[in-house]
């Protein structure tokens, strides 16, 4: 009863925020854009048939077409728009949850109810996911239906993007909650959680810099230290690849036709080598063990959540 009360309250809070409706509108706009794209044989039409051109690359009737189509949606709409801009907006929308609840006069009423502080904290934390779960489910199911009904491409694995989005958000939300509980400041929670997200990305990508430049690998001790450290923060950068893997699409390089630098856009030998090297890096990302990626990220999240909960439970209001 208490759990649902907190969840329903958070949902009502979400509906009250303009950002919620901005994101819903953005999802609808993307779905509309996708809906305006149609295929007839090897032809692709845009804006409901206003403009038409030939394509073999994306045509659902070709062998690789459906995979490339879903890949384009995963990499450019899901990962780039919802996975970055959307998550930033959701962080802004949810960062005030704990500071608002902890305001004098508000927290007094809640703490006077027969619910332990630890339980209240956990319920509120889980309810913070409601926002991203609703937004993620709306976007993913909507685009899933458009791909299936409009293009005839059904990829059930794409639906796994919803829990993956919730996971991605939770990695950053835990920092937002920790800062919110410690400072009771929404602004601090927004700034520091976005800063932490950037830091996670930098730390996580640091070993790749060493791998890209072999001369750096001579500093073996530094390289191994960085590799170990890179396992500590959440693997937010893995989201694209986990979603792509779940949807059964290849690398981002596979979903966009790469023009060559040769005459008439032909691929040169150098182009092929660079493309192969870039693809190799992405393929290694795709082959990463999702359990290790998610598990180590959740471990970090659990530690931060426990620290925030401890602070929430022990303080006076």
């Amino acid at each position: 009863m208490q759990f649902w009360a907190v969840i329903v309250d958070s949902f009502r809070e979400s509906l009250d925020r303009k950002i919620f409706w901005v994101l819903i509108a953005l999802s609808c706009l993307i779905a509309l854009v996708m809906l305006s794209v149609g295929f007839t044989g090897d032809k692709i039409s845009f804006f409901f048939g206003l403009w038409e051109t030939e394509t073999e690359f994306y045509s659902p009737v070709t062998q690789m077409g459906p995979t490339r189509l879903v890949g384009a949606v995963v990499y450019f709409f899901l990962a780039a728009l919802l996975g970055w801009i959307g998550i930033v907006l959701i962080i802004i929308a949810t960062a005030g949850m704990f500071p608002e609840m902890m305001r004098l006069g508000a927290i007094d009423v809640v703490l006077s109810k027969p619910i332990s502080r630890a339980r209240l904290f956990l319920y509120k934390y889980i309810s913070g996911m409601v926002f991203v779960a609703v937004q993620g489910a709306f976007f993913v199911v909507l685009t899933f239906l458009v791909m299936g009904l409009r293009w005839g491409v059904w990829r059930p694995g794409y639906l796994l993007s919803v829990p993956l989005l919730v996971l991605l958000f939770s990695y950053i939300f835990c920092v937002s909650v920790y800062v919110g509980v410690k400072t009771r400041s929404t602004v601090a929670a927004i700034l520091l959680s976005i800063g932490a997200w950037a830091l996670f990305a930098v730390v996580h990508q640091a070993p790749q810099v060493f791998e890209t430049f072999p001369s750096l690998k001579e500093h073996a001790a530094v390289y191994h230290t960085i590799r170990v450290i890179s396992w500590i923060p959440p693997k937010t950068g893995d989201f694209d690849y986990l979603a792509a893997r779940a949807a059964g699409v290849g690398t981002s390089l596979d979903v966009v036709p790469m023009p060559g630098t040769g005459e008439g856009g032909a691929m040169t030998e150098l182009d092929r080598q660079q493309l192969a090297a870039a693809r190799d890096v992405e393929e290694r990302q795709l082959l990463k063990d999702p359990v290790a990626s998610i598990g180590s990220s959740l471990l970090f999240e659990a530690v931060v959540v426990l620290m925030a909960m401890w602070s929430f439970v022990r303080r006076d209001y």
Binding site: M1, A5, R12, E13, R103, D108, P114
Partner: peptide, 24 residues
């Protein structure tokens, strides 16, 4: 409590329902 604050996005009936639910 003194100077209490209720969530601004709730109606009067929802406030009573929410805190009633927390009160089991």
């Amino acid at each position: 409590p003194e100077n209490h604050r209720f969530p601004h996005y709730l109606t009067g009936a929802q406030v009573l329902d929410y805190y009633g639910a927390l009160g089991k």
